[in-house]
Design a protein around this nucleic acid. Structure first.
Lengths: 339, 339
DNA sequence: GTGAAAGCGCTAACAT
DNA sequence: ATGTTAGCGCTTTCAC
């Protein structure tokens, strides 16, 4: 069938051990022997069988990235960043979609499929702090992404949610806006992205001495454009006045923007709008959308690095690490200064 | 270390062959024996080692999907569809990004990494018909997606590019539009998506007895929003009049739409616009975008099925198959009938 | 510096 | 109906 180390060994007139040594860059080989083996490898077009190597080493060279949904631009861009970071380490990435379904999120952690990978980058959305104990039973190296689980049993890499939302809100305030609406709150949530971002919003109001007005805070289930649109319709119907909008992600910002434009509101003249995530699309909408760049590349790079460390040190217990990526305010047309 | 078939066999008081039989649903086992084994598996929490199985069977249970870029919404949605289709067959998917770079597209077909997978779904963008010979040297089962290579040495699954563009153009004509611009042509290209779609555009004009006007056809390098915007700026500067736009994908349509809106043109009143791909975003823009749904789910489902068949029949030579998915015209606000 | 041989966990002949 | 055994292709002691 395919060419094995034995074939190479036979052709080079050495034992398979020597072939193995050459392949694995073992130091003490006579240059002449090495060359003979290299030549034989070349001639036969030999390629080591990764599965066999995996069986010996217990490694596959593959990690998995579990995310809710690739159709969501944020996760597509995160996946892109993760794949680049993994590629730099010689790792392939299997992507698994959970659909933000709790059962499936848990199932993906337990199934047979996790045997195919050396480690897991896990971005849960439906799972809660109460489910954190499930992670203890996972023997595969694991790094957590996102906001659902803090202080879990393993590393956690995410963004500065609160500080980012605070900066976004402060940016609108600096433009002179005082009645700032929120699109995308999750009432009662304390720990998720929405909860953390709401805290940042409140902090910024506090900093400026502006009173919090509950009527300005629109709740949305999910993170989709349609939700942002729906929330904005309710805000407009309620008759509450506002001159700024902080949306808790870009998609919802765009949905809200569309509804405002249909209602004849001008952006940024009547209402200044800022989103969160800095997805590619925000550079091309009308108007272009100001937003918070959460540091996706840094998140991906650090998460992969943490995971690689855990994979490389099986027995070792590594104290859970927490890394928050640097964020940046991106100013575009939707919060431009108006005459 | 981890639990093996031997542990199960010992506990159940049988040989490992019997354990193997139970796991692989071999028919002739005494129910009582089967139960004893199942109980032992349960008690020990045994899970078969997929790598070892892979070493024996030569299969990994993983396929790879090679695409240009996940940040492109069309490919993200295609990847999503492929992963669902693969999931239904019990396969995992490794995604590899080529960045539409010819060297990398070729490299991904040859590298060690392809050993990790049973088969490849290959969507090239930079590769051309002349490179088709490279595919002959690929021993891994392969199914081609996209427009770069027709009549290659293996199955090819794609969309009705020409017919779709023809339907899109005909739709605008049915609305009474006569001066229909094109955004996204690739001059001189015959075989890629852009070339095929331009043919469809011309056919529709022909069908309606409208003369082709080269000044209405705007070229774009790439498929991005920025390209559509740039092309529209040139069209507007050129002073050529038009009342309809067929963009060769949705992203470019949105970029073009933005420029027209900035220029004060109303859509669809002044200009009716239709795109191609039916990406999610088109449901939420202002106005919502009419487009051609190319049948992504069908493409993914058929491609995975073809690949699975090739994987399941190694020695067998399967005659290359060609499958074109059904498309559909999706009418939204950008081509609504105006009073 | 290089070779011989054991074994990673599983499946598939072959035997009983 | 179940057990024995020989590998899949590689790495890794342990000799020499």
């Amino acid at each position: 069938m395919s060419i094995t180390m034995h074939d190479v060994a036979r052709l080079a007139g050495v034992s398979i051990k020597t072939v193995s040594n050459v392949i694995n860059d073992y130091q003490h080989i006579r240059p002449e022997t090495r060359e003979r083996v290299t030549a034989a490898i070349e001639e036969l077009g030999y390629r080591p069988n990764l599965t066999a190597r995996g069986l010996r080493s217990g490694r596959t060279g593959v990690i998995s990235l579990i995310i809710p949904d690739l159709r969501n631009a944020y996760f597509a861009e995160l996946a892109d960043a993760v794949m680049r970071a993994a590629d730099a380490q010689g790792l392939s990435v299997i992507i698994e979609q959970s659909g933000a379904d709790r059962e499936r999120e848990i199932g993906l952690l337990g199934g047979e499929r996790k045997q195919k990978v050396d480690g897991i980058l896990y971005s849960a959305l439906a799972l809660g702090e109460d489910d954190a104990y499930i992670l203890n039973d996972v023997d595969t190296p694991l790094v957590l992404l996102g906001e659902r689980i803090f202080h879990g049993p393993t590393d956690h890499v995410t963004m500065h949610n609160t500080e980012g939302a605070r900066a976004a809100t402060a940016h609108l305030i600096a433009l002179g806006r005082r009645r700032i609406a929120v699109v995308g709150a999750h009432r009662g949530e304390v720990i998720g992205s929405a909860g953390l971002r709401l805290v940042g919003y409140k902090q910024a109001l506090d900093d400026a001495g502006i009173e919090y007005d509950d009527r300005l805070v629109a709740e949305v289930g999910g993170w989709f454009r349609s939700g942002g649109a729906q929330a904005m319709r309710l805000l407009l119907e309620s008759g509450v006045e506002f001159d700024g909008v902080v949306a808790f992600n870009d998609s919802m910002a765009l949905g809200a923007m569309r509804v405002m434009q249909e209602a004849g509101l001008r952006i940024p003249h009547d209402v200044a709008v800022i989103g969160y995530d800095d997805i590619d699309e925000t550079r091309y909408t009308l108007p272009t959308l100001s937003t918070i760049d959460p540091g996706k590349d840094e998140i991906a790079e650090v998460a992969v690095r943490f995971l690689v460390e855990r994979i490389a040190n099986p027995g070792t217990v590594i104290e859970p690490r927490e890394h928050l990526a640097a964020f940046a305010l991106v100013e575009r047309e939707s919060t431009a200064v108006v005459a």
